[in-house]
């Protein structure tokens, strides 16, 4: 019967899809682990840097650095958006692009024009679709960027900020909180928030020998902090993307499995019906002859 052949074909097609989604899930798992290891590798650096900044801030009272100043009367800002270069990762892009457009709309209401720095293809395609402007496409950044790739963008943003072209710089990315939770958010990159010692953080009074003096050292350190923050946003986004893809592909594989079960059942029923019909035919023929 034609119906049965169609069912077999469909089941084969779904089986193929399941094979693909399962493979993609495995790949995403491997990439997630790699991204996670890389993020952990950068942890000692950021921890040490935070320690040095807090030690320095204690030594250099009343610092006034250009990167910390809140500029006035500038109707322009910048936003770095980190999307993904490949799809099939659930709502990863939707979420991050939603917080980005919300942020842009908010800025616009205040009469501030925002230059968008878009990383990766999906975000670029979405903004093209919305007919929103992208100031710069950060095409040179890979899927698992190294610090050296991020540095030029951070430096360019700081340059523009110091020259008074932009009033602030934000980054929209997906924060990696745990492997069960990732959240799209917009955080402020510039101006740098003043370092407030967290409560319970004991003030270590180390009597350092400084070279050059603490103020000058701090001025060197702050740009590094900005660069590191942007780098962390990128590595967080990389981890979150892989998790999102893992989850999406797991769901797709499960759905394919259900579909295969359903199609098998339908096929078996059709087969049984056909057999019954044939038997009835034979039995009917035999009775007619008898």
């Amino acid at each position: 019967m034609a119906n049965r052949r169609v069912l077999v074909k469909r089941r084969d097609a779904v089986r193929n899809i399941r094979k693909i989604t399962r493979t993609m899930q495995l790949i995403a798992t491997a990439r997630f682990q790699a991204a996670h290891t890389r993020a952990n590798a950068s942890r000692p650096y950021s921890e040490k840097l935070a320690e040095v900044v807090s030690d320095l801030a204690a030594a250099a009272e009343g610092i006034d650095h250009p990167l910390m100043r809140q500029p006035e009367e500038i109707d322009r800002s910048a936003l770095v958006v980190i999307s993904s270069s490949r799809g099939l990762c659930g709502s990863f892009n939707t979420n991050v692009l939603k917080v980005a457009t919300n942020h842009l709309d908010g800025q616009e209401k205040e009469g501030i024009q925002t230059d968008v720095y878009m990383a990766r293809k999906k975000g670029i395609a979405y903004f093209d679709f919305l007919k929103r402007e992208i100031a710069q496409e950060l095409v040179e950044i890979g899927d698992m960027p190294e610090f050296g790739e991020i540095e030029p963008i951070a430096s360019a943003l700081m340059d523009r900020f110091i020259r008074g072209e932009i009033a602030s710089a934000h980054v929209a990315y997906t924060r990696f909180i745990s492997s069960g939770r990732q959240e799209a958010e917009v955080v402020q990159l510039l101006p740098l928030a003043r370092h407030e010692p967290a409560e319970g953080e004991s003030k270590r009074a180390v009597d350092y020998e400084f070279s050059p003096d603490p103020k000058e050292l701090l001025e060197e350190l702050l740009p590094t902090t900005v660069r590191l923050r942007l780098f962390q946003a990128f590595s967080d986004a990389a981890i979150s993307e892989q998790i999102a893809r893992m989850v999406a592909m797991k769901a797709a594989t499960d759905a394919a499995e259900d579909k295969i079960k359903l199609l098998s059942r339908e096929y078996n029923r059709a087969r049984q019906t056909a057999i019954t019909m044939e038997l009835l035919d034979i039995v009917g023929g035999a009775t007619a002859l008898a």
Binding site: L56, Y208, E209, F210, S211, P212, E216
Partner: peptide, 19 residues
Amino acid sequence: PAHDGEIGIRAHRAPLLVK
């Protein structure tokens, strides 16, 4: 290499923060 010349460090040096 420090910002103003080379610095050598041995164990138990006094606390130092240098560019």
